[in-house]
Amino acid sequence: MNKIQASEEFKFIREMIDRTRKITAGSWMFFLIWGIVAILGVGGMYALVFVEKYSWIWLNWIVFVGIGVVFSIVYGKRIERSKGARSYAYIATGHVCFACGMAFLLVGFVFPLLKLYSWGLIAILISLIAGILVFSLGGIYEWNLLKWCGVIWLLGSLGMVFIHENYRALLFIPLILIGYILPALVLRSMYKKQSEEDAS
């Protein structure tokens, strides 16, 4: 064993470890479904505002978020079974998503119902938590695109401060397109490329 061989062994070890930490291209569905669910939620909310059915806005969000949660649990279990390994990165992701999910629930439903703050603040706080979630995922998987998406969400939450509270949630649409749909599309093209390579 010499210095060069030892360095090569370190590189080899690093490569093996990296293979367990790469975000699976199959994760694109999570980003896509949550992006779609969020856009439909915002659309539904403004439609209800337009027809002046304000008391149904909570139900709108419960339905769409509920769809997202059920999908995440079912699809998440399927991915876990098909992967054959539970990496610590995957376990950390699950915990971060669960914690942020609980935060979304408290900030979006519980605290407004307890009248701790006006409904106009919800969009800012939701963007803040989304930024923390997406940035943290970028850190866990060492994926710079996700880290930048997280920063955009955080800047979005700051931008909302300067928008009238009636229109704040509209800023969700570009944030979701950049912060969820874009990573979904990038991962999907990686997944297709990976599947083609595996097939050949």
Binding site: F12, M16, K83, G84, A85, R86
Partner: peptide, 26 residues
């Protein structure tokens, strides 16, 4: 040994891994 080193490098990063996962990854 290359394979045994690869196995331990992978297992140090995961809680557990299946035989097929190890085979495909290595």
């Amino acid at each position: 040994s290359r394979i045994r080193l690869a196995i331990l490098s992978i297992l140090i990063s995961v809680k557990e891994a299946s035989f097929n996962y190890l085979k495909d990854t290595i």
